[in-house]
Design a protein around this nucleic acid. Structure first.
Lengths: 203, 203
DNA sequence: ACAGGCATGATACAGGTGTACCAGGATTGG
DNA sequence: CCAATCCTGGTACACCTGTATCATGCCTGT
């Protein structure tokens, strides 16, 4: 058979063009023709590698997920040589906030997908390597182990605290994207609440 | 002049049709024709009362804002005969969460508008009687007065706590809409964190 | 009673959308 | 060298979008 080009590479090129448009102009501006133009290929090619538009949308979303996951792992590693639970939790949560260019890009793009999954509920499951439920469970586990180490008060509920923090980071991200707050203010608010949690309960 | 119909009433009828579509199918499904059909009028009428589509979108958003504001005032009144700062804060925050039919409707519709204001930044300012900054400031004031009454610890930062709580409620609402959590679980998480704040700091 | 202007209906237009189809060029297996 | 297979370009087809235009009915002030 004639195996000329690298399919995966082409798919990546096109999918990232879609993500670029979604980030800057929103998903409603990401037509097949616009994606083709942004990727520098013909409309036919986009159709060829992703038969339907939903296929393209889903594939691009999956790629965005692995990008975020990669960023989180990078931030956890960079949190310190011996990662304490607190530093891990701080790294995970603060790397989601739109502070630098990469996180702003990822957050904006995820926000563009947000209304899409609302209007089409549970159509986009089984896709993401990033289920927020998993992340929440992981955070709760970190908090619980910090609790056993005496770093957080006995009375705290690790699961509820994790859920609340994750939701807060989500909301803070929205406010930054909406221009009500700078990224630095958002991390300040987050770190204050982390201090309340890890501050041994008295204070 | 011939003053036959009640303009305001017709505008309300059409705008609420738009909101109904936005809630159930998202804003991208709210075409002029769909709104006309939902409102039971002709396309021309929608054009007549709202010259352009942006006008309709903005007007409907404003109406949604006053609906939310009315709900908040209703909840504050229903919070108790003598409203304490804590009950006021609890009422405001928990009435935003999608628990009953009305709040689900409002939250879903606001979410539908969310990506719209992202792709067109600051185009929709000066509109809402509900700036989140104002709400945040009001919450901070309530917390501060509770602080003077000794209900919350001295070390707490009222402004930062208010910002965090508001963001958390925002994020919790998103998770409920996304189907990860029930509304009751969300208010439980919120009330836990309110307890942490108002629980005099020790515990 | 009659003209004036408001309110409504039907339709047209230009543009953009996702998808389908047809054709030809390149490359490799036999 | 031939043919089969993969890849790519151009284009067409319905359909839906927001908006503009033409026309008509109906109420009202005088």
């Amino acid at each position: 058979m004639a195996e000329k080009v690298d399919h995966e590479e082409r798919r990546r090129q096109i999918a990232e063009a879609l993500l670029r448009i979604a980030e800057t102009q929103g998903l409603q501006a990401a037509s097949m023709r616009a994606v083709a133009a942004e990727a520098g290929v013909s409309l036919r090619l986009v159709q060829y590698y992703f038969t339907t538009k939903d296929g393209l949308l889903l594939d691009a979303l999956a790629r965005l997920g692995v990008q975020l996951q990669a960023r989180m792992e990078r931030w956890i590693e960079g949190a310190g040589s011996v990662p304490t639970p607190r530093s891990v939790v701080t790294a995970i949560l603060s790397c989601i906030l739109p502070t630098d260019a990469e996180s702003r890009r990822i957050t904006r793009t995820y926000a563009a997908y947000y209304t899409l999954v609302l209007s089409d509920p549970e159509a986009m499951e089984k896709k993401g390597p990033l289920q927020p439920d998993l992340l929440e469970g992981f955070l709760a586990k970190q908090i619980r182990s910090a609790q056993e180490a005496g770093e957080v008060g006995e009375g705290k509920d690790a699961a509820v605290a994790a859920a609340g923090l994750l939701a807060m980071v989500n909301g803070l991200g929205s406010s930054v994207l909406g221009g009500q707050r700078s990224g630095e203010e958002a991390v300040a608010i987050l770190e204050y609440h982390l201090g309340e949690l890890f501050g041994a309960g008295t204070r």
